[in-house]
Design a protein around this nucleic acid. Sequence first.
DNA 1: CGCGGGATTGATATCTTTCAATGTTAGTGG
DNA 2: CCACTAACATTGAAAGATATCAATCCCGCG
Lengths: 266, 266
Amino acid sequence: MENNAESSPCLALDAASPAVLGEPVVERLRHVATQHPPVAPGTRIYTDRTPFSAIFAVRFGAVKTVEFDDNGDEQVLSFHLPGEFFGLTAIHAERYVNTAIALQRTAVCSLSYQGLSRVADESPPLRRQLMRLMSGVILTEQGAYAAMAGHAAPARLAFLLLSLRLRMGGGRPLADTIRLPMSRAELGSSIGLTPETTSRMFTYLRREGLIEASGRNVRFVDPDRLQAMADPIAALNSPDQVPQNVAGTTSSAEGGERSHGEASGS
Amino acid sequence: MENNAESSPCLALDAASPAVLGEPVVERLRHVATQHPPVAPGTRIYTDRTPFSAIFAVRFGAVKTVEFDDNGDEQVLSFHLPGEFFGLTAIHAERYVNTAIALQRTAVCSLSYQGLSRVADESPPLRRQLMRLMSGVILTEQGAYAAMAGHAAPARLAFLLLSLRLRMGGGRPLADTIRLPMSRAELGSSIGLTPETTSRMFTYLRREGLIEASGRNVRFVDPDRLQAMADPIAALNSPDQVPQNVAGTTSSAEGGERSHGEASGS
DNA sequence: CGCGGGATTGATATCTTTCAATGTTAGTGG
DNA sequence: CCACTAACATTGAAAGATATCAATCCCGCG
């Protein structure tokens, strides 16, 4: 169950570290980092009322960050998989601005921000890693934003699934099958869809032969076409595909084709 | 016309600097920073094929970052106003991943990333400023994402307008009226709406008496209610408001009140 | 003064949500 | 080990929101 490639990401900081940072720096990081014991699903790792002191990384399991509206309904902001950092927004705000919740049995590590700062003051390579790390977060965030703003529901789901596949397994050999750590509702919330629509999009992707999905297990049957669907840019490659009529709602059994309008004018 | 509060943001780095950083550091920054001459609207400041060497800040004018899909249609990712930095995603990717375009007559300054790194290596306060700066970008980005994912069209536009108001004028006294540096199409693209829908949302906000808008001039008539609309959380405060039927499309029998447009005589 | 691009408005098609019912799965306690 | 329950997932039908297609309209600009 628990991926044992569990070297603490707090010491790895986004890249091979002892080599880059030097053993003394890693040793100092060790004192700044805390390895937290595993927590149960649903556990809040921090809240917007937790005093800010540290940034976090996932060791194993998975985390979502959410925002609550008055009704207590939550809006999922992002998911964090093993090796990924979260809580970085607190650096600017000097307080946590959202809430981080474990999706599964999850272990995280934390880096005292004060301590980290001091170590970084004396290690330019570490400082550079941190910049790179934060820039990477912005990049990811911006990609997700573009996917949201520019595309329709099926594209967003395709994008999200591919993103999760890429990020699970730490990078390397792109699993054929993944097990999602979150529910349909959570998946949907993070891309601005209701659970029902999310489910319909699963059905749709299934029918199109792009994925197989049963519960939280997803098998990528035709990653290329899925990619094409996620990314209108590549869509032209697989010609008369890119079906549009998606919602099972409008009875049409026809796999209608259209050139896919897409918003973003100008 | 050009806001003369034009102290180069490249030297200010997100906060009062000489005080914090010390004059020697600011002096070194001066050598790392380049003040670029004003460029015409439409000018590309960098492209995804420009070799990465520097990050940018807006001195005056306004900038949009965009991504192109195959058709040459652009998706607006974000807007950048005076004092704001952009191009930060390139740090991670080691190349620019989008394209930055001036919306008006605009001047930017750039900081060589190499040079900046060297100065930061020797100035912990500068390093901290940079972290704060990047964290702030993530925060902003995440806020925009949440607005996108969680809300409907009118809320997204309200959010965007309020965000622009807040950011124009560098922060201080919240202008009653602003002049938008971008078209309806660009505005819409950035929040995932077509130009037509964007225009309809303007009409709607106008009819509701929340704003007056004529062309690119926008006057904030009822900022509180606008805020409430942007943020469902606060919506409960103003009870029986939170109108829902928005698109003029569905024959709004809702007649009468014509608060009329006409923003301040530009 | 006329041109042309952006803005607005209208009518319709399509997509997404909402409300509601049903099916399915995993976890629990007997 | 099985029955049972509660949460999650899927599906359907109708309502609502947004996109698309297509005309104007209007203003800035030459």
